[in-house]
């Protein structure tokens, strides 16, 4: 198991956003967290990467408990992160955004990462010098994805990659995620839109009100996930 979350609690002030969830992310799979707005998807992702503290529980990444490690060190362990709403660095060029994800890896690895990502996303070549803040939402999502992948992470965290995107872009981003999966990257992604996301995942969990409603292989959660989508 690459990532194992055991009985994770997250609170903001007095309000519990996550009430003891447990999640398994096996090596090489794409695991989906679906749930409506406010279900606790971002809280889960942010607890893994360290942006919110875990009140209780363990987050085991390759056997080490991430809750004992400060935020800035976690990425180094091999975790890539694409935040909700993309949050590219707006004043930096597209290329610098991508390279910032490979900070400190040395020139050789950086060039390697850039060349590989440019072959996957030709957009990175077309727009290389443009400030990322000027791009469209879909283009920014590509940049955020490439930035997260630039350090060749073992685990990729994607927080609502389809948020606010047009259907063509949802298709493109979906294809990119499939491509990464084919390459062996382990992905933990969240989505409100269950339908396109279910096509990408191998297994998943349905979150509601900070608790897991159902978890298992994609086919086992499909009905609950789709029912939730229309709530």
């Amino acid at each position: 198991m690459l990532l194992r979350i055991e009985d994770l609690w997250v609170r903001y002030g007095g309000i519990a956003a996550l009430s003891g969830i447990s999640i398994d992310v096996p090596e090489g799979e794409t695991v989906l967290l679906v749930g409506a707005n406010g279900a606790g998807k971002s809280s889960t992702i942010n607890a893994i990467i360290g942006l919110v503290p875990a009140r209780k529980g363990r987050i085991l990444f390759q056997g080490t408990d991430l809750t004992q490690i400060p935020c800035e060190r976690r990425a180094r362990l091999g975790i890539g992160y694409s935040p909700e709403g993309r949050r590219v660095f707006p004043t930096m060029s597209v290329t610098d955004n991508v390279l910032s994800g490979a900070f400190g890896l040395g020139r050789k690895r950086q060039t390697e990462a850039l060349e590989w990502l440019r072959s996957v996303f030709p957009l990175l070549i077309d727009r290389d010098k443009q400030p990322a803040g000027q791009l469209s939402g879909g283009q920014q999502q590509v940049v955020a994805l490439a930035r997260a992948m630039a350090s060749f992470p073992k685990l990729l965290l994607l927080d609502e990659p389809f948020l606010g995107l047009a259907p063509v872009w949802i298709k493109q981003i979906g294809d990119a995620i499939l491509h990464l999966r084919a390459r062996g990257t382990t992905v933990l992604m969240t989505e409100q839109m269950a339908r396109p996301a279910l096509k990408l995942a191998t297994s998943g969990y349905v979150l509601r009100g900070g608790e897991i409603r159902r978890g298992g292989p994609v086919d086992a959660i499909r009905d609950v996930a789709l029912a939730d989508e229309y709530l």
């Binding site: 800035e72 060190r73 949050r87 660095f89």
Partner: peptide, 18 residues
Amino acid sequence: RGLRALADDRTVAMAQGL
């Protein structure tokens, strides 16, 4: 690059290991 990233969005930059 690291400095400009931190200036643009400290949270995300830190989550990236800066």
